[in-house]
Simulated scan of single mutants.
Amino acid sequence: MSKSQYPYPPDEFDVRGPEGAPVGVHREPRSGWSSVWPFLLVAVVFGGLALGVMTYLSDSDPSTENPPTAAEQSASPDASADEGGGEGSGEGDAEGSGEGEGDGSGEGDGSGDGESTEEPSEEPSEEATDVAALLEAADTSAYVRVLNDGGPSGEAGRGSDALGAQGFTNAVADNYPTDDSGQTTNVVWYTEGRAETAAAVAAVLGVPAEETSEQALSDGDVIVVIKQELDIAE
C-alpha cells in the first residue's frame, strides 16, 4: 500500500525518530547482573543441599568414626580379658609342677617355683656300665703285666693299682724289658683265650678297644704297654 492510499490521518507514530534512536523499544534495557543472579542463586542453593547430604551420610557411617585410643582399649574389659585374664586367674599351686600368678595385664610370675618331691634318679654312665659288664666277663685272677715303655714315671704302678682296685689279684708293674717296644701309644696285648680279660683291662686303664690285639706272649696272660699317661676309669 502506498502512502497516498493510506486511509488514516498522520499521527505521532508516523513521525520518524531521530537518527540512532531505538525503534520499537517499550521497556528499559536489563543489566547483565540481572540476568546472571538467578543462575548463581540456584547453584548456591543446590551446592549447600549437596554438602549437607554428604555431611549427614558421613556422620551416620560407623566406619568413619575415630577408632578408640590405646587408653580406651586397655580400659575395656574385653581387652584386659584377652591379655591376661581376670585377676588371679593365672594362679596355680601344684606339687612338683610350679606356681604362676596373673595380675590381669598379661604379666605373670609363673617360671616354675614348685618343688618336686621326687628325687632325681642317678643313672650310671654308659662308660661305668660297660666297665662293670666287662669286669663280670673277665678273669680277674689272670696274670696282668703293666709295663712302662717310655711313659710318665710311675705310670705302671698307677695302672696296676687301678686294676687291683677293680678286683684284679695278679696285676704287677714293671718296666718294658727292652729299650723300645716299637709302639707309639698305649696298647694291650693278650694271649689266646684272654680277649674278654684284656677288654676289661683296657676299659679300666682307658686304652681304646682298637689298641687291643692277640699276641704270642711268652710271659703273662695280658700285657699293658704304657707310652703315655693312662686315662683311668673312675
Rank of each mutant, 00 (worst) to 15 (best):
E72K: 13
V25A: 12
A138G: 09
F39T: 03
V42L: 14
V187L: 01
V23E: 13
T212Q: 13
V172T: 09
S141Y: 04
E126F: 05
S2T: 10
E196W: 04
D221F: 00
V144D: 14
G90E: 04
Y56P: 00
P124S: 06
E155Y: 14
E118M: 10
A165Y: 12
V144A: 01
D78F: 10
D180L: 01
T69K: 11
V36N: 00
S74M: 11
W33V: 08
E119L: 09
E210F: 10
D174K: 02
T55E: 13
S74D: 14
G24P: 04
E210D: 15
T169F: 05
E115T: 06
M54Y: 11
E214I: 05
G110D: 15
D113A: 00
G96I: 00
D161V: 03
P62I: 04
G48L: 14
L49F: 13
E211I: 00
I223T: 13
T197C: 06
E211Q: 13
T191V: 02
G102F: 05
E229V: 01
S89M: 00
V222T: 12
V204W: 12
G88P: 10
D59V: 02
V42R: 14
L135K: 15
D93F: 11
D149R: 10
D221T: 02
G193H: 08
E19C: 02
F13L: 03
V207D: 09
D161I: 02
D113H: 05
T55I: 06
V146H: 15
V201C: 03
S2H: 05
